[in-house]
């Protein structure tokens, strides 16, 4: 198919899609209105579980099974990307070339590293109380670690990143999530049911299994993203 015919086909299809979308969107309740039946039910259910962050309650309590699927999607994608990016026979590993970074960049990298790691931990453990959670905090932790690469020290990043342990960490995160879910089956309350005591509203140890699942996801996502970025970095920096 030439570019011309392809564009023509797209013009017809794209226009049709746009028309259908506009017809459908005209039928949605108006932007900014007060009609939110799901909101009313989710907020009531979240507050009944004494969870201040209702988004975390939806993700880790009310529909925990979906989040487990999400965690497994991430696991599968990291596995897939690492498999695709592994060093092929025609390529040889090499020592990465000496990096060149501005002294100010190096200083900023080393200064921000501990701050970012603490921030990531904070986002993970307070996921049920304030904005954040395991997914967001895990990504902050994993990218924070890569400030070492920005600071120009790939060997230091490699030392801080024994990949085996991150692979175990990723599996452990998903495993902890699964075990927490199965505990509900053993206790007879159902898969991924919130069976721990809910505690007092707004305290760190409250809302039952939500913080536990947040930590599990935080470990899994943090380790998973590190493994993923490592695969890309090795493919780019350490092969030729």
């Amino acid at each position: 198919m030439t570019r011309r015919t392809r564009l023509l086909v797209f013009a017809v299809g794209g226009l049709g899609l746009l028309v259908v979308l506009v017809i459908a969107m005209a039928g949605i309740p108006g932007f900014g209105g007060g009609l939110h039946p799901y909101r009313d039910r989710a907020v009531a259910a979240g507050l009944a579980q004494r969870t201040p962050n209702v988004v975390a309650s939806v993700n880790f309590d009310l529909r925990g099974l979906d989040t487990f699927g999400e965690e497994l999607i991430l696991l599968a994608s990291v596995l897939g990307a690492a498999t695709l990016l592994r060093t092929t026979r025609t390529e040889r590993r090499r020592e990465p070339p000496a990096p060149r970074s501005l002294p100010s960049t190096v200083l900023a990298g080393y200064l921000m590293l501990p701050v970012t790691l603490v921030l990531g931990l904070d986002v993970v453990v307070h996921g049920h109380l304030t904005p954040g959670g395991g997914f967001q905090g895990g990504v902050v932790l994993a990218t924070g670690l890569h400030l070492l690469y920005v600071a120009g020290s790939y060997p230091a990043l490699r030392r801080l990143r024994p990949l085996d342990w991150y692979e175990y960490g990723e599996a452990a995160g998903s495993g902890l999530f699964a075990l927490t879910g199965l505990a509900g089956v053993v206790a007879g309350t159902g898969l991924l049911s919130n069976l721990l005591p809910h505690g007092s509203f707004g305290s760190l140890l409250s809302t039952g299994t939500v913080p536990l699942l947040n930590v599990a996801v935080g470990i899994g996502v943090g380790a998973g993203v590190v493994v993923l970025l490592a695969a890309f970095l090795e493919a780019e920096v350490a092969t030729r």
């Binding site: 939110h36 909101r39 988004v55 939806v58």
Partner: peptide
């Protein structure tokens, strides 16, 4: 408050 369900869906 705004709808938390669609925010959770956006996270997914």
């Amino acid at each position: 408050v705004v709808d938390p369900v669609v925010q959770a869906l956006s996270l997914t």
